[in-house]
Design a protein around this nucleic acid. Structure first.
Length: 467
DNA sequence: TGAAATGTTGGGGCG
DNA sequence: ACGCCCCAACATTTC
């Protein structure tokens, strides 16, 4: 009996899943599949933290499918070949997936679609993972927007995103299930063994948690999101980013839930964050090598400095600037960093240390649970000043002032840097002024002088200005 | 989604 | 009483 394949990729959910609904609507048995393809050309391989998350998310998806009388088939290898083989094995007459927007992924998906078209098999990519397709949002002259404000205005002027689809209640199973790999044999959760415990303590991957987190956010933090979102202590942000990155929840579900909550300044701010995600995906869609190439070409001449010791101090959270180090340690421990602290830490790397943003981007790619091929490079280029609609290069965060402004009680710093727990508030963001002084073996002295580093960064910027 | 330098203003101390 | 100066507070400019 012919079947329909539903190919799960970065959409590990049952709700608002158009590909799954299309498979169900075909009236044929549905074969859900996930393909682990780690050598695809033009598609960035997941880092260790993403692999850890993926392991747990696939397990959760399989459990959810089993509750519907189905299951998740796991296959490994080049997706073109593996999907083609599976379709033959299962006598598939249709295959559905939800679109992804990385140029390499799109090229592969188009190849696969053409191959199925030749065989007379329906192959269809559906819209699920963005609110607006990148090709729908263009300037008057038909070009993609380069400025976020204009881009988001154009999005908001479009018809509202359609309502999310409900999760299916039952999925028709085939008479005989095709072979599946054993998830544990992929060893994805072993990718970052030393951090597995702390990652597991911080997160529960899976669709159920994603939905619960959204509900909690709407009940609590959304109302004060506008005023508190930049404060890294406390729980003023949604922490939906990894769930969204793996598609355990879709942007339409978030859009619907937040707008249903009622219009407010806070919900507009929050929706604008979804807007940045849309913007980043649009930029990546239109420009494949975003993680490598400066959007502003004058930055190709920028005098980045190679300093392994300073880069290592930054990675390990030992720069001597508490707000930076707290963030980097939060990243190390939980695979996540508060958004505002990401900006401060990224600004410090690129401006105070003059280290190439690509080094920071790679570290985040490996360390983040929410690492995303669009958001990560776009945001790094934004901070470094070389991106589309970037923060001006001369906007250099003062880590002491930012710490004092956004973590005035020092709670965030004390939580992540326990050796500073006893420093009084007035010195918590400048511990070198503490009396009695701290031993450098307890907490390092600042690895750069802020004022001098700022002048050096401005001079470097002047050297590339003007074309 | 900055910070620092520079400019302006006005109250008050004081000769 | 008056003018001068200081400087905090705020605004503007510059990087």
């Amino acid at each position: 009996m012919p079947t329909s394949i539903v190919w799960f990729r970065n959409d590990l959910r049952l709700a608002d899943n158009p590909a799954l609904i299309a498979g169900l609507g075909s009236g044929r048995p549905v074969i859900p599949v996930f393909v682990l393809d780690e050598q695809a050309s033009g598609i960035r391989p997941r880092g260790p933290t993403s692999r850890w998350w993926l392991h747990h998310s696939l397990g959760a998806l399989d459990a959810s499918l089993r509750a519907l009388g189905s299951r998740l088939i796991l296959r490994r290898g080049a997706a073109d070949r593996v999907i083609g083989e599976l379709a033959r094995e299962c006598d598939a007459s249709a295959i559905y997936w939800n679109r992804a927007y990385e140029p390499g992924t799109r090229a592969r998906d188009q190849r696969i679609k053409q191959a199925f078209d030749r065989r007379g098999v329906t192959a269809e990519g559906l819209k699920a993972n963005l609110l607006f397709e990148p090709w729908e949002i263009t300037t008057g002259s038909g070009r993609p927007y380069k400025v976020f404000g204009a881009f988001w205005r154009a999005c908001r002027a479009m018809q509202s995103p359609s309502a999310p689809l409900p999760a299916p209640r039952r999925l028709p199973a085939p008479g005989l299930w095709p072979r599946s790999d054993d998830l544990s044999a992929w060893r994805l959760e072993r990718s970052t063994p030393r951090r597995a415990g702390s990652l597991g303590a911080a997160w529960t991957p899976g669709e159920a948690t994603a939905l619960a987190r959204l509900a909690d956010f709407l009940d609590g933090a959304l109302a004060r999101y506008g005023q508190d979102r930049d404060r890294p202590a406390g729980e003023a942000t949604s922490r939906l980013s990894p769930h969204l990155a793996f598609g355990e929840i879709g942007p339409r579900q978030i859009w619907r839930a937040v707008t249903a909550y009622g219009p407010s300044a806070a919900s507009d701010k929050f929706l604008a964050e979804l807007g940045w995600r849309e913007f980043a995906h649009s930029l990546l869609f239109h420009s494949a090598d975003l993680a490598q190439r400066n959007v502003r070409p004058e930055f190709d001449r920028f005098p980045w400095r190679t300093q392994d010791d300073a880069l290592d101090a930054w990675r390990q959270g030992r720069t001597g600037f508490p707000i930076v180090d707290a963030g980097m340690r939060q990243l190390q421990a939980t695979g996540w960093m508060h958004n505002r602290v990401r900006m401060i830490a990224a600004s410090f790397l690129t401006k105070h240390l003059l280290i190439d943003w690509r080094a920071g981007e790679r570290w985040f790619w490996d360390m983040l649970v929410d690492a995303d091929p669009a958001d990560n490079p776009v945001n790094w280029q934004w901070v470094a000043g070389c991106g589309a609609d970037a923060a001006p290069y001369f906007r250099i965060f003062n880590p002491v002032l930012q710490g004092e402004k956004l973590d005035p009680g020092g709670d965030y710093v004390r939580h992540w840097i326990p050796e500073l727990a006893r420093i009084p508030v007035k010195a918590i963001h400048r511990p070198w002024t503490a009396d009695p002084p701290l031993s450098a073996s307890v907490y390092p002295a600042p690895i750069v002088d802020h004022a001098a580093a700022r002048q050096r960064a401005l001079a470097a910027y002047r050297s590339i200005r003007g074309g």
